Each structure stands twice: as structure tokens, then as C-alpha cells.
Computed example of a mutant assay.
Amino acid sequence: MTQVSPAQTPGNATFTVRAPASSANLGPGFDSLGLSLPLYTTLRVTPQEATEVVPLGPGLQGTPADESNYVYQAMWLAARRAGRPLPPARVEIETEVPLARGLGSSAAALIAGIVAGNELLGCPLDPAAVLDVAAREEGHPDNVAPALFGGIVVATLDKLGTHYVRLDPPAHLGVTVLVPDFELSTSKARAVLPREYSRADAVHALSHAALLAAALSVGRLDLLRHAMQDYIHQVWRAPLVPGLSDILESAHEYGALGAALSGAGPTVLCFHDTREPTGQLHTYLHSVMARNGLTGQVMDLPIDPAGTLVERAQVAWAE
């Protein structure tokens, strides 16, 4: 695992941090499983005598242009973990990750900020510490781990730390996302979940999450449709995402290897085999939106393998 040394980070040098979007849960892997997607939040950081925070682009309109900005607060998290003051800097922020869509926009901002703060300080935190800071801030590691390390990540958070296994994406595994044109806050999506589950639902979740992790680790694409079944969160969130139930039940008939709500939604993720055309799947997903009076976009994406990058040093925060 590689990290930037203080000698590589002169105090007056501008650097860029790029953190990717992510999709969490993948069905049964609630709060513990996610993958990285090539839509990016990018910070351009220039040390200077006074702090400036500059959100850029239409996606960040209305976000704070001062030290209360979430990205800058994330930079302070790195400083607090390191026990050092954060040096002042100009921080320019851009993002391609749509906000409140279930694609890890807050995780990308959080990871980018923590990595940028760590970089300003000369990298006192190793990647494991960066992940732990981010996971404790989020309350779960399912988005922040793939945003940091790239690929597919299985992770847990407990009193002893944040623990993870990173998987390279199986050959020929691609992602199709349906991104509706409406927002859904994570807090609203969590509020509909029950406080208790039956033993049968718990066993179903454990067995299917284990099968999904195993199938992804050995490239058993044929098992994804079965392994991605979930009774812990998707059934409860379905009323918040019109058409979700139809997609979970029928997307495999149109070429999907499996389907899941992406994070808290409303984005829906489908896996596909990159050796096969996706036109039929796209047509089906657009038809589901049309039947439910929704608009949005459907995109084919690869799984981002690199995770968060510090451009000046060309360092990937990955194994």
C-alpha cells in the first residue's frame, strides 16, 4: 500500500484529489458492501495564508462557500485524528456525482476532504486510518470504503476499527444505473426501516450477503440474480422509489444479471455482462420510468478500479 510522504508534498504546491461515486448494499449487503463508479468529486487545493472554499458548477449551487462546507469539515476530521492544526488553503470543489441519488455523493465529498486534509498535513494518516475516520463519520463503511480503495469492497465497522477486503471486479461485469430526476434523502430512506426483523429475514440476509460476496470474489456472474435478493431494506424502501419492485422482479428478463436499489436510492443498479448488448435493458428501464411518470437517465458504467487519487503525486489509495 502506497502513500505520499511529506517530502512529496511541499507546503506551497497545488494538488488535486479525485474521489469516485459509489453504490452501496448491492441488495443484501446492507451497510457493508459497495463498489466504486467513475463519476468524480474533485478538489483542487492550494496552500495559502487564508482559507477559501470555492464550490464550482451547477451541481454545487447553494452549498456553503465557507468553512462550514462539508468538504472542508472533512478536511478538519483528518487534522483532528492527526492531532494537528489544519493549514489554511484555497479549496476548489467540483462534482459529477448527483446529490441525494444513492450514488455516494456525501461519501465522495467526505473521502476527498479527509484525503486532502491528510495531504496538507504531510500524510500522517495511513489509508486504514483514513478509512476509519470516514466510516465513523458516516456511521457505516459501505460507501466510503469503495470510494477510497476502488473496486468492490466488503467492510465492517466495530469498536476495534474498520476492517475491509477489497475485490477486483470480476471479468465482464458491468454496471447499468437508472438515475431518476428526483432526490431521496438517506434520512428519509432509513426512517421507513423497521426496528426489528424476524429470524427468517436475518438468516435470509446473512446467507444472501455471504453468497453475493463469494460470487463476486470468484466471478460467478450466474449467481448474482439469486444472491442479490434482499428483505432487510429494499422491500421497505420500494414505496419511495416508483418502479423499483418491477425492476427487482423483472430486470433479468431484459439482460440484467441482477438488480438492486443503489444505496438509499432512488438510483437503481443493474449488473450486466459487458460481452452482451444492453439496449434491451435500457429500453426496459426507460419504460419503467415512463409508466411511473418519472424522468431520468440510464447509463452504462464500468466499476472504477482506482478509488481516490492524489493527482500531483499520482498515488492511488488502494492495495
Score class of each variant (00 low, 15 high):
P85N: 13
L86P: 01
L86C: 13
P87G: 13
P88V: 13
R90K: 11
I93K: 01
E94Q: 15
E94I: 00
E96A: 13
E96N: 13
E96C: 08
V97A: 08
P98D: 01
P98M: 12
A100F: 09
R101Q: 12
L103P: 10
S106T: 03
A107V: 04
A107R: 02
A108Y: 10
A108S: 15
A108D: 06
A108E: 04
L110K: 10
I111Y: 04
G113T: 07
V115L: 10
N118V: 07
N118P: 03
L120N: 00
L120W: 07
L120E: 00
L120G: 04
L121D: 09
L121I: 15
L121G: 05
L121C: 13
G122M: 08
C123A: 15
C123R: 12
C123W: 13
P124T: 05
L125W: 02
D126P: 10
D126S: 15
D126T: 13
P127M: 05
A128P: 04
A128Y: 12
A129D: 14
A129R: 14
A129Y: 03
V130F: 11
L131G: 07
D132W: 07
V133A: 14
A134R: 11
E138T: 10
E138I: 07
G139R: 03
G139L: 01
G139K: 09
H140C: 09
D142R: 03
D142F: 07
D142W: 10
N143H: 05
N143T: 01
A145I: 02
A145T: 02
P146E: 03
P146I: 08
A147P: 00
L148W: 12
L148E: 01
L148N: 01
L148Y: 12
L148K: 06
F149R: 02
G150A: 00
G151Y: 00
I152C: 11
V153P: 04
V154D: 05
T156Q: 04
L157W: 05
L157P: 09
D158E: 14
D158W: 10
T162W: 11
T162C: 14
T162R: 06
T162E: 01
Y164W: 15
V165E: 14
V165C: 05
L167S: 05
L167H: 11
D168N: 14
D168K: 12
P169H: 05
H172N: 15
H172K: 11
L173Y: 08
V175K: 07
T176E: 12
L178I: 13
F182C: 07
F182E: 08
E183F: 14
S185Y: 11
S185G: 15
T186S: 12
T186P: 10
T186F: 09
T186M: 05
S187D: 14
A189W: 04
A189L: 07
R190D: 09
R190P: 00
R190W: 03
L193I: 04
P194G: 01
P194F: 08
R195P: 06
R195F: 00
R195Y: 00
Y197T: 11
Y197D: 02
Y197A: 15
S198G: 15
S198T: 15
S198Q: 06
